[in-house]
């Protein structure tokens, strides 16, 4: 996988770590930013096998689930016309593993619309995916969590952005920049 892209993700998540931890603290145990950053650093250090490196280093549910997103981007990095299908496949696997659906206030709420938007806009699939993911993440705010740790929090995290959905949007935004598609 393109190491420059992975290194850019590392610096972006270094900036975001505290904010993501804070978002996660409202609904989980407050370490989402640190978890993703650990995974990104390992992926950037192992660009030949970023998926396994990410999964092993990040650990937790996020390690397994976000490694599928990394896998989709690896697949689509040289041909962004395949991005929509790759994201849809990742979303399907994430949904199976996590037993989650659209509207459950999870990373899927950013990923599913991103996949659809990429397929609907063949001229700028990466930018469309990023834009849809950002809207999707924003839309998690009023949702009540049905999956993930937020489910067990008083109020199901209503009023807070889902940290996982936010991370998906950030990753896709970086991917879009890398492909010269400015949203």
């Amino acid at each position: 996988m393109n190491q420059t892209f992975l290194l850019h993700l590392v610096s972006r998540f270094e900036q975001l770590e505290a904010r993501l931890n804070q978002l996660d603290a409202a609904t989980g145990d407050g370490d989402h930013g640190g978890t993703i950053l650990k995974g990104m650093r390992a992926a950037a250090a192992t660009p030949d096998a970023p998926v396994v490196a990410f999964r092993k280093a990040a650990g937790g549910a996020s390690g397994s689930l976000f490694s599928l997103l990394i896998g989709a981007l690896e697949q689509a990095e040289n041909d962004s016309s395949t991005l929509g299908d790759a994201l849809a496949t990742a979303a399907r696997k994430i949904s199976q593993l996590g037993q989650a659906r659209a509207g459950d206030k999870t990373m899927l709420d950013a990923l599913l619309p991103a996949a659809a938007a990429a397929n609907a806009d063949p001229a700028n699939p990466a930018a469309a995916a990023a834009e849809a993911a950002r809207r999707g993440a924003e839309a998690t705010k009023p949702m009540q969590a049905k999956r993930g740790r937020a489910k067990y929090v008083e109020g199901g995290g209503v009023g807070h952005l889902d940290a996982g959905a936010f991370s998906v949007a950030e990753i896709l935004t970086q991917f879009s920049k890398e492909h010269g598609e400015q949203p």
């Binding site: 396994v52 999964r55 092993k56 990040a58 650990g59 937790g60 390690g63 397994s64």
Partner: peptide, 12 residues
């Protein structure tokens, strides 16, 4: 043994 409050990866 995973990291603090994080399940170990499937690989581990």
């Amino acid at each position: 043994v995973g990291d603090v409050f994080a399940a170990p990866s499937p690989d581990l």
